[in-house]
Design a protein around this nucleic acid. Structure first.
Lengths: 148, 148
DNA sequence: CTCGGTGCAAATAATTTGCACAGTT
DNA sequence: AACTGTGCAAATTATTTGCACCGAG
C-alpha cells in the first residue's frame, strides 16, 4: 500500500473529497526527487488533465500544506513545495542545486552555538547547498540561494 | 565622515548620479536596525518625499543590491533588505523576530558537518530566529519562518 | 441528493517597463 | 548641453476569490 492511499484516507476522514486530481498530485510529490514550484505541479498535472486550471493547483497545494503532506520553502526565485519529511527526529538538509534532491543532516548546530544572554531562541535554519553525487558532474540548470 | 558619503562616492565613480533620494535611502538603511520591505522603504521615504513613487524605490533597491550596499533575503512573507554586513569574516546570523535586528554568530557549523562522499558543497545557510534582549519581553508583531 | 471541488474570469498584490520630463554633472 | 533619475501609467507575474456547474459520497 502506498502512502498516497493513507493520505487520501486522512482527507476522507476530514470530510474532504477524494478526487483523481488530488490523488495524482500526491503521487506526483511522492515520485518527485526535489522541490516543485506551483508551475511545475501545474505542468506535470496538465499532462494528465488537459483542462486543469492553475487555481486548482494552488488550492490543492494549500490543502496539502494545511494537512502537512507537503512543506513550503521560500527560495530566491519563489516558493517551492516538497513532500514533508518523514523523519520524526529534528534534522537539517543538504539540497542539490541541480535536481533539488534533499539529504538529511543529523547534526544540529544549535548545541554548539553560543547564544548571547538576552536572546531567546525560537527556531533555526541550517541548510547546505551544493551538487549531489549524480549532479556533481553536469550542473545544468542551477538554482540560486545566497550564502550567509 | 559617514559611510553614506563613501557609498555615494562609489556611485559617482560608476557614472551614476547622486540624488537626494538615493542619499536618503542609504541613510535609511544605515539607521535601520533590522530588515526593511520595499513597502517599509517606500513609506519611510515618502515622509521626506511626498511625491515619491514605488518604482523609484524598486529601482534604487535593485541598484543598491547590485552595488552590494544592501542584501536581499527571502522571508516567508516576502523579500526584505538590510545593509550588507560589514564583517569581512564568514559568519551567520541571529535574527530577532520582532525588531529583526541581527546579531552575528561567529561559529560556522560546516566544519562540524559530515558531508556524504559525492556531495559537492557550494554554499550554506545557518540562521537562528528568536527574540533579542529588548524584544524578549514584549513580542508584538512577530514574523514567521519555518524551522527545518 | 448534498456539499465539496473545479474551471473560468475577474480581483489583488508585487514587481517591471516605456516614456516624457526633471535633475545632476 | 548630455545623459541619468524620476513619476506616471500600463504591463507582467504570482496568487486569490466569486460564481455556476460537475462530481464524490
Amino acid at each position: 500500500m502506498g502512502t498516497t492511499d493513507e493520505i487520501m484516507q486522512r482527507m476522507s476522514r476530514k470530510g474532504l473529497r477524494i478526487t483523481e486530481q488530488r490523488k495524482t498530485m500526491v503521487k506526483l510529490f511522492e515520485s518527485a526527487t526535489g522541490y516543485l514550484t506551483p508551475k511545475d505541479v501545474y505542468e506535470h498535472m496538465q499532462q494528465v488533465y488537459p483542462g486543469l486550471s492553475f487555481d486548482t493547483v494552488y488550492r490543492n497545494l494549500r490543502l496539502l500544506l494545511d494537512m502537512d503532506v507537503v512543506e513550503q520553502i521560500m527560495f530566491e526565485d519563489g516558493v517551492k513545495f516538497k513532500l514533508s519529511c518523514e523523519e520524526e527526529h529534528h534534522h537539517h538538509h543538504m539540497i542539490c542545486l541541480n535536481c533539488e534532491k534533499t539529504l538529511p543532516i543529523r547534526f544540529c548546530p544549535m548545541s554548539e552555538t553560543d547564544v548571547p544572554g538576552g536572546f531567546r531562541v525560537v527556531k533555526h535554519k541550517f541548510e547546505v547547498f551544493g551538487y549531489c553525487e549524480n549532479c556533481a558532474a553536469a550542473p545544468a540548470a542551477s538554482a540560486s540561494e545566497s550564502d550567509s
